[in-house]
């Protein structure tokens, strides 16, 4: 593992701890407004200062980690399960199933900007955490399906799979006991990168007002509130701090993904 991946891992562990123990770490009520203490600079009382309505930015960023990680985790788990099943079907059975899945579905989903589809879906379904998660899963599964299909195509010709088949193992057993464990590595890489993508998409949609609705301390919502010109000139930290949180989180998952890929692919490691 390279140093950057270790750095990513440290950031992610820290983030998980912060999200799990958010009520203990946060110093103030996330929703409590105090108009007499607006735009305060960072201090001992308010570690990251306060925003336009006097809310404590530190506490909001801490609780924001919960939203980001929750969205990321659910999106990655659901879309990877869906993607693995669809990719396995395409790779294992081939024929018209494969032509339909990889020839049509993959091409359509890849020929189309995922963000636009998510925006369109959320626009029609309405804003909200669950709808946002649903939209991100709809655009997210394709990546896993492609990886899974590729791995299945490669692994299914191996001798041990042929041996399992000769011993009378059924398709399900072959797929999940023999092929999946061999395909798991690139899928983990994909999941790590997918986590970065989901966190970023959640922030983007919330920023556009299409994700988590405003009073919630989503990092995207905080950025949207912080970019208001009067807030920007009075308290730039209201924008910079959630911005750093997003960038750091995305960077960390990308580092882990890249590091894993390098580690699992010896040809890249030698370079």
């Amino acid at each position: 593992m390279n140093r950057l991946a270790i750095f990513g891992l440290v950031v992610v562990v820290l983030l998980v701890v912060v999200a799990l123990f958010a009520p203990l770490i946060a110093t103030h009520d996330v929703g409590a407004t105090d108009l007499t203490h607006r735009f305060l600079p960072p201090s001992a009382e308010h570690l990251f200062g306060t925003d336009a309505t006097g809310r404590d930015i530190f506490s909001r960023v801490v609780f924001g980690a919960r939203i980001s990680l929750r969205v990321g985790l659910v999106v990655v788990v659901v879309s990877s399960i869906v993607g693995i099943i669809i990719g396995a079907l395409a790779g294992y059975y081939g024929g018209w199933i494969d032509r339909l899945i990889s020839g049509y579905l993959f091409n359509v989903f890849l020929a189309f900007p995922g963000l636009l589809l998510a925006i369109a879906m959320v626009a029609f379904l309405g804003a909200g955490l669950n709808k946002l998660i649903f939209a991100l899963c709809v655009i997210g599964w394709v990546g896993y399906a492609r990886v899974m299909r590729g791995q299945v195509l490669k692994v299914r010709e191996y001798d041990f799979v042929q041996a399992a088949r000769a011993l009378g193992a059924n398709d399900l057993r072959i797929l999940f006991r023999h092929i999946l464990p061999n395909a798991i590595q690139p899928l983990i890489v994909q999941a790590s990168l997918g986590m970065a993508g989901a966190v970023l998409s959640e922030a983007t949609l919330s920023f556009l007002g299409l994700g988590v609705p405003p009073p919630a301390p989503s990092w995207g919502v905080m950025l949207e509130e912080g970019r208001d010109l009067s807030t920007l000139s009075a308290a730039p930290h209201a924008l910079i701090i959630p911005g750093i949180a997003i960038a750091l989180t995305v960077l960390a998952f990308n580092f882990i993904g890249d590091g894993l890929r390098e580690y699992l692919d010896p040809r890249q490691r030698a370079r």
């Binding site: 949207e224 912080g226 920007l232 960038a247």
Partner: peptide
């Protein structure tokens, strides 16, 4: 992301 860089 653009929405961090842009406002900055």
């Amino acid at each position: 992301p653009g929405f961090v860089l842009g406002p900055m």
